[in-house]
Design a protein around this nucleic acid. Structure first.
Lengths: 232, 232
DNA sequence: CGCTAGGTTGAGGTACGTCAAGCTAAGTGG
DNA sequence: CCACTTAGCTTGACGTACCTCAACCTAGCG
């Protein structure tokens, strides 16, 4: 995942692999990191989908980010100390944890690798900026299309796309919390996107039927994903 | 600004000050960093307000973040290479620039200081997550109130609050682009907030009349701003 | 004196949300 | 095997929050 942004040396890869990881599984809906907690470990998503979630007093929630296999989900904790949101499993997940101390040492010993790690935080921020634009100024169809484009490209990088399809088994209720819509309107938005052709989305399998059209509807420009190799 | 999050040593402060800064002024509306550009310098806002802005083809725009004096506006460029959005001056600003190389060297020489810099990127991300929640799940009044709370606390930290008032001379049109609303509805939202008491907002001066009520309306919890000193 | 940028107001349209119901498929217990 | 439940998807009817359009007002400013 890092490797598509800049070349890593053998040593760097080894150092990452040598960190004292501990792996744990989570079931769909389980909380991986809780709001208000003070994590002493960072976590890397190995398999499945997870999301960052913010809650309001009226019980509403908004998902602020979706994470896929290979994402360093909680580097923030290393710098931010107290979680201001929680991370939940959207599907069953496998998650690897390392102590903050070990990560901090690593970034000090290998500054380039450290930059690459912090780069993932910056990319997450860029993704979030795009979500802000989507929520604020895109119509729901375009917003959903944009999300599909983004997910498709990110999954491609980690080899989780099969032809034009990928698996994204979340409910429309969760999608609604992601898009900031009601469930009913999310359903109608999806129907419109299916009816007009660019995408099909059934039983948790998303198939891109017409990429160019989807990109056009979404006004998708992938610069912000930083999917290019470059010295950093 | 960094200092309210963790103590900096004299050396660290000196090293920051010794960077080869170059200062430039920008007038209201000017672009400080352009979308698509490849900045070779990072910039620090010394004075005034700036915003990150995303544009859509229909001419709509969405402001994704507001920056105040003391903010390291463009550390991203150091890690992300190509700007996926632009940074514009909301008021006349004074901005200090340093070469990426100098910053990179500094982060390698002084890892703790480096972490503090990257921490600001992580905090920006946390602020953006809160904006996502606001756009997706808060009503406009609560969203605006939340924004006012956030701005108030951030300005306090850098000494730009005078009693219960601060200066924020932006037009309602800009506020609309920030909140993802139309100008008309932004106006009505502001009126409601003024009419119900917690805030007054006139001629670019915002006065908090009733902080507790404002916080309640906004459901504001300041954890995410990380305004506490802690070893990082 | 007229022009412009920005704030404000009213009227009417529309894109959403809410409520309520029906449908299907999977799971559970008899 | 069939009832029964439950989670998730879908649809229709209806209300409302927000947008759009259009005007008017005010305070600079040439």
């Amino acid at each position: 995942m890092l490797e598509c942004r800049d070349r890593l040396s053998g040593e760097e890869k080894q150092a990452l692999a040598d960190l004292p990881w501990r792996v744990r599984r989570y079931e769909r809906g389980e909380e991986i990191v809780g709001e208000g907690s003070r994590p002493s470990q960072s976590c890397l998503l190995l398999e499945g989908y997870a999301a960052r979630s913010g809650y309001l007093s009226n019980g509403r929630r908004q998902l602020t980010a979706v994470h896929i296999a290979g994402d360093f989900v909680d580097l923030h904790g290393l710098l931010l100390k107290v979680m201001d949101h929680s991370v939940v499993a959207l599907t069953s997940c496998s998650v690897a944890f390392v102590d903050h101390g070990a990560v901090r040492d690593l970034t000090e010993r290998m500054p380039h690798l450290g930059r690459m790690l912090f780069m993932t935080v910056a990319i997450d921020a860029a993704v979030q900026r795009n979500r802000i634009v989507g929520l604020g100024r895109r119509n729901p169809v375009s917003h959903l299309a944009h999300f599909a484009c983004e997910l498709f490209r990110r999954l491609q990088v980690v080899g989780l796309v099969d032809g034009n399809s990928f698996s994204f088994p979340v409910t429309q209720s969760e999608l609604a919390d992601l898009l900031g819509l009601s469930i009913v309107h999310t359903n109608r938005t999806m129907q419109e996107l299916r009816a007009t052709g660019p995408i099909s989305w059934r039983d948790g399998i998303v198939t891109i039927e017409d990429w160019d059209r989807l990109v056009a509807v979404a006004e998708f420009t992938e610069t912000y994903l930083n999917l290019f190799r470059e010295p950093r």
